[in-house]
């Protein structure tokens, strides 16, 4: 188990974002974390990325707590736009390169090309779709072992979504790389997700293998999401 979460609780002033969450993620597979806005998906991702601290509970990645060494093997794409707006696309890639082992500058440029991003434009001046595509360029410019994608398609125009999904499908190193992807647009990633966890109000309400759930319930992940969300 490449990710182990045990009894995870996270409190924010006035509310509990995560309640007694426990699950594991298998290496080399795609785990979908599905839930409405406010279900705790983003909080979970922030904790897995090591930028938010649990209130209670244990998280182990690669068998250890989250240290800088662990972070060097994880690519995190948050829901927000996290890059320095004053940097150009090129400067951003040059900035991130030294931090992540195996960063391939040529690959980065190829992806920038594929994503049709202007290298010399400031990140702050990019459109929403371009910003979303930039995150994917960053994620796949180096051979991370875990990719955490928090709402990679949210609020993004359909052509950009297509490009992002295209890159995802061709770049995913199945069997070696583990992807956790969260979304509330379930139908878009219906065919990509292998294991699934449904979150509601900070707890898991349903989980399992996607194909197994389909067989048992005769429903798509999307339909199950509708059911579970109500």
């Amino acid at each position: 188990m490449i990710i182990e979460v045990e009894g995870l609780w996270k409190r924010y002033p006035g509310t509990w974002a995560l309640r007694d969450l426990s699950f594991t993620a298998k290496k080399g597979r795609v785990l979908g974390i599905l839930g409405e806005n406010g279900s705790g998906k983003s909080t979970l991702f922030r904790i897995l990325a090591g930028i938010t601290r649990p209130t209670r509970g244990k998280v182990r990645i690669f068998g250890t707590p989250i240290t800088p060494t662990v972070k060097a093997r994880i690519a995190y794409l948050p829901e927000v736009q996290p890059y320095y707006p004053w940097m150009t696309v090129r400067e951003l890639l040059e900035f991130l390169a030294p931090f992540y082992p195996g960063w391939d500058p040529q690959k980065a440029l190829n992806l920038v090309d594929f994503m049709q991003l202007p290298l010399e434009k400031k990140v702050g001046d990019l459109s929403k779709g371009q910003k979303g595509r930039l995150k994917v360029v960053v994620a796949f410019s180096w051979p991370s072992e875990i990719v955490l994608m928090d709402e990679p398609l949210g609020g993004i125009d359909p052509p950009s979504r297509k490009r992002i999904l295209g890159a995802l499908f061709s770049e995913f190193r199945y069997g070696e790389q583990t992807i956790l992807i969260s979304t509330h647009l379930v139908s878009e990633v219906e065919e990509f997700i292998e294991d699934v966890i449904y979150l509601k109000d900070g707890s898991i309400v349903l989980s399992g293998h996607a194909d197994q759930l389909r067989e048992e319930r005769g429903k798509s992940l999307s339909e199950l999401f509708e059911e579970v969300a109500t």
């Binding site: 930028i51 800088p68 972070k71 060097a72 995190y76 736009q81 320095y84 992540y100």
Partner: peptide, 14 residues
Amino acid sequence: KSDTAYVLLALPIR
């Protein structure tokens, strides 16, 4: 304020 802390704190450094 600009959410760049998401990248900064996720960097593999102490």
